[in-house]
Amino acid sequence: MSTAHSARLPDAAAPDRGERAAGARLRRGGLRFGRRLQLVGAAFVLPALLFFLAFKFGPMLWAMELSLSAYDMVSAPRFVGLENYAKLAEDPVFRASLINTFVYIAGSTALITLAGLALALAINTAVPGARHCMTAMFLTNLMPIIAVTLVWRFLLHPFGLVNQLLQPFGVGRVDWLTDENLAMPAIIAVTAWRFAPYFMVVFLAGLLAIPKDYYEAAEIDGAGVVRRFVHVTLPLLMPTLFFVVVVSALLASRIFLMPYIMTGGGPGDATRVLSMLIYETGFSYLKMGEAAAISVVLFAIMLVFTVLQMQIFMRSERAHLR
């Protein structure tokens, strides 16, 4: 699953007294009962944990080992130390892909966050039909990515719908996917189209959780729409905002299909991202060691966002325990 929702974060922040009381009772409940429950609890977690060991941590350790080897999948791997990383450092395609990945992460995160927030604010006006509009827009998030990319490839064609719609505004022919300066922005826009409505829902949950009397108080103070947004909405929405930024960044750092189908990484290397490069290097050029080294780099990028994600989590947990 690519995304979680933060709607639970406010819940988590709300202290659950029942659970704390249960914990207290447990501690009083004597060793044998406690030990048994400990085992039961651990047993519940065990299947998932085993799964993660087999399919996440195991492969990652393996990837790290592979990244220090030359391996063409046919002959046995041969230890080469940091050679793969040295090769990457001097490879312009890797450098371009690394920069593209950062641009893509930054661009799509910003656009997803802004668009998601804007849509949520629009829905939150509670004008007639707002709820149906939300449901309709959420559908873009349920459309299979493969369908999204195929549809948008046609829409962004030099004579496609997008240019047709822009024509009345005096915009001439725009080669969205073949101009090296426009291809990445175009893919970012399509990414935002697919994912922003999801975060719209997340933001909306955050907005709904803000008590109405805060707004009423601000209104009595004479605050206009903008001031109310800046002084009431935004501070209270901060945790949600932070969450959205981190999750969409995590999402963007692993994206593969959108550039793969829409531009094939081109024109030139203009939209090649690290996940594409891993696949290409490993399965097309049979350089599994080098592919593993790229994986480790991508892993390091994601680590940053994951640590941020955990900090949000820890903060909400602390609030929870307070």
């Binding site: 690519s2 998932a48 944990l49 993660f52 087999a54 399919f55 996440k56 941590f57 195991g58 492969p59 990652m60 393996w62 990837a63 592979l66 995590l250 692993r254 593969f256 996940s275 891993i278 696949y279 490993g282 599994m288 592919a291 593993a292 994986s295 991508l298 892993f299 994601m302 680590l303 966002f305 994951t306 994600q309 955990m310 989590f313």
Partner: peptide, 22 residues
Amino acid sequence: LLLILSTLMLPLEVTLVPTFLV
């Protein structure tokens, strides 16, 4: 819990090659 959450940085795109070998 932290261990499980940390797998968020290990999507299939990253571990493609070794996962295939597993």
